[in-house]
């Protein structure tokens, strides 16, 4: 366990808090990849998920695609795209972002469509028979009620991306994974541990923030019935659907 003490000492050393390999730079890089990826993936997957959830079309196909993507090894995809596209070492960012987006899509998609599906069909039916347009049903009924599950999808996606961005250091990307990948060949296990600790910390902090957001988005009227069994079941399954699509 002495190794942990050394790792913390390394982190505490002021000289490691500046320069291109300093902790702030690596952290900022990691956050930048994560943010960029998640925004792109949300634009694609949540839109698609809302469409699938609202219309019920392509549901089977999207479930199939989601589980197929889970089987895809991330490291393989990263290295293959890096070489096949010929970007090589100089332009690692493009294949990385592609891979990260691809991997972030399943949990987002699952969160969005299972969220919409978890809305009681009778509520939707009532909204329609009152004279809401399809658009109004989506925005005023389905999305507010589905929001916790949609954010749950974002949560899984963010975790997935933070983890995969670490692996992406292998194809010369920056970020906190650099500490691990650079230090492994030279057997600098303190620095490896530093990387592991920092990236874990980052994941935990982001997870905490997103859980809080998720709690806040449960509509007040729904919070009152949260303990009722059917709803709890829906929530649990939904969470599983999104959590399960993590692969890295």
């Amino acid at each position: 366990m002495n190794a942990f003490a050394e790792a913390f000492a390394w982190i505490g050393d002021p000289s490691h808090w500046s320069g291109p390999d300093g902790i702030p730079t690596r952290l900022a890089e990691h956050l930048a990849y994560t943010g960029l990826t998640v925004v792109i993936a949300i634009l694609i997957a949540v839109t698609l998920g809302l469409y699938i959830g609202h219309t019920g079309r392509f549901r089977g196909a999207s479930i199939g695609a989601t589980s197929a993507l889970r089987a895809l090894p991330t490291l393989g995809l990263l290295t293959y795209l890096a070489i096949a596209f010929g970007f090589g070492i100089r332009l690692a960012l493009i294949p990385t972002i592609i891979v990260l987006v691809v991997l972030a899509i399943p949990p987002l998609l699952a969160g969005a469509y299972s969220g919409i599906e978890s809305v009681d069909p009778r509520t939707v039916d009532a909204a329609r028979s009152m004279g809401m347009t399809e658009w109004q049903i989506l925005w005023k009924v389905e999305i507010p009620l589905a929001l916790p599950l949609i954010i749950g999808g974002v949560r899984s996606a963010v975790l997935q991306v933070v983890a995969t961005a670490t692996v992406a250091a292998y194809i010369s990307l920056g970020g906190l994974g650099r500490y691990i990948i650079d230090a492994l060949p030279v057997r600098d296990y303190t620095k490896v541990l530093v990387g592991a600790l920092l990236v874990t910390l980052l994941a935990l902090v982001l997870e905490g923030i997103l859980i809080s957001i998720q709690r806040l988005t449960v509509p007040a009227g729904v919070r009152a019935i949260r303990t009722s069994p059917p709803l709890r079941r829906v929530r649990a399954t939904g969470q599983n659907a999104s959590a399960a699509s993590r692969a890295t």
């Binding site: 009681d120 009778r122 039916d125 009152m130």
Partner: peptide, 14 residues
């Protein structure tokens, strides 16, 4: 006007 069996109220609205 439309009234249905399970009231069909929107759970997130007062």
């Amino acid at each position: 006007g439309y009234v249905m069996q399970n009231s069909g109220l929107l759970p997130h609205r007062t």
